[in-house]
């Protein structure tokens, strides 16, 4: 039982990480209806910026401040990317946009390596390494902190999307760009804002993820991105709540599978995708996704 609970905690810790990147994916999908393959690399770049701010001998900022600054930089960067790179193909077929984000994936990854070097970096965690034993299970400050950050993120997003005028605009543009333009919503600005927020979330996610991995390197985000996509698909691409639930399910299922199902060693990736396959067969738009009614 104790083992089960501690694996559950492990899984939760990982799941929260997947969820944080999945949230960024979902946000872009909600506003623009497209899947951003460069999401992980954008987060990677921001995390390099965070690392630079912390590590640099002249600046040497505390981690939390560095994360804040790099989130601001990412916010601006995300807006710029939307305006400069995505805008020209906004009305093209989704496949074209997919290729553009793939191009961005390659470009950002290699530019990050060229600027920051190819060696592995260490980014300290923003949370203390304290741990408590609750009912025989080790609970780390890391996990508690991650859950807290994610919960705050979700709450803020929910407030933004559901309770503010800007949020209403974002949702309107996502559901029907042409009509929302007719009622006077600045569609372009909304799309830009969606990208900006999503990039900032990515920066936050990156800074949370990297301290839990062996180090920051060019491939840091790629495996996480796959799990985050899995989480987003499981929850439904258009649901932030789904992203969180999906992320946690993927993380926990993965941890439990490694612990209890021996043949799954090294191939624990089977778990999230078996889950996705299973869920999508019964609910083709994910657990929390909305169904689209089609007219002939």
């Amino acid at each position: 039982m104790q083992l089960f609970l501690s694996q559950l905690m492990n899984g939760l810790g990982n799941g929260v990480i997947y969820a944080s990147l999945a949230l960024a994916i979902v946000l872009i999908y909600r506003t623009t209806g497209l899947l951003n393959f460069a999401q992980g690399e954008m987060a990677l770049f921001s995390t390099y910026v965070t690392w630079k701010l912390v590590d640099d001998s002249e600046m040497g900022l505390p981690v939390a401040a560095a994360i804040g600054i790099s989130m601001v930089i990412a916010f601006v960067g995300g807006a710029l990317i939307e305006r400069v790179v995505i805008r020209p193909v906004e009305r093209s077929s989704p496949l074209v946009i997919v290729i553009v984000t793939i191009g961005m994936f390659l470009a950002i990854n290699s530019i990050a390596q060229a600027i920051f070097g190819t060696d592995t970096k260490q980014l300290p965690s923003v949370f203390s390494d304290a741990a408590w034993v609750v009912g025989g299970v080790r609970v780390t400050a890391q996990t508690v902190g991650l859950v807290g950050v994610l919960a705050a993120e979700c709450l803020l997003l929910w407030l933004l999307l559901q309770k503010t005028r800007v949020g209403l605009g974002l949702r309107a543009v996502a559901s029907n760009p042409d009509s929302s333009r007719l009622v006077g919503i600045g569609t372009g600005n909304m799309l830009m804002l969606g990208w900006a927020i999503s990039a900032a979330l990515g920066a936050l996610a990156g800074a949370m993820i990297v301290p839990m991995t062996p180090g920051l390197s060019a491939g840091s985000m790629q495996a996480v991105l796959i799990y985050a996509f899995a989480a987003a698909a499981l929850g439904g691409f258009d649901s932030p709540l789904g992203a969180v639930v999906g992320g946690i399910i993927v993380g926990v299922a993965q941890a439990l599978a490694i612990q209890y199902v021996d043949p799954l060693n090294d191939i624990e990736l089977v778990v999230p995708f078996a889950l996705i396959g299973g869920v999508l067969l019964f609910r083709p738009t994910g657990l929390f996704g909305r169904r689209v009614v089609e007219r002939v």
Partner: peptide, 21 residues
């Protein structure tokens, strides 16, 4: 700068998509 060659490839892809969607 061999690390930059994927960047060049990526940017070329994006430009190609602009010109020839």
């Amino acid at each position: 700068e061999p690390t930059l060659s994927p960047a060049l490839f990526g940017i070329t892809l994006i430009l190609l998509m602009y010109v020839l969607p």
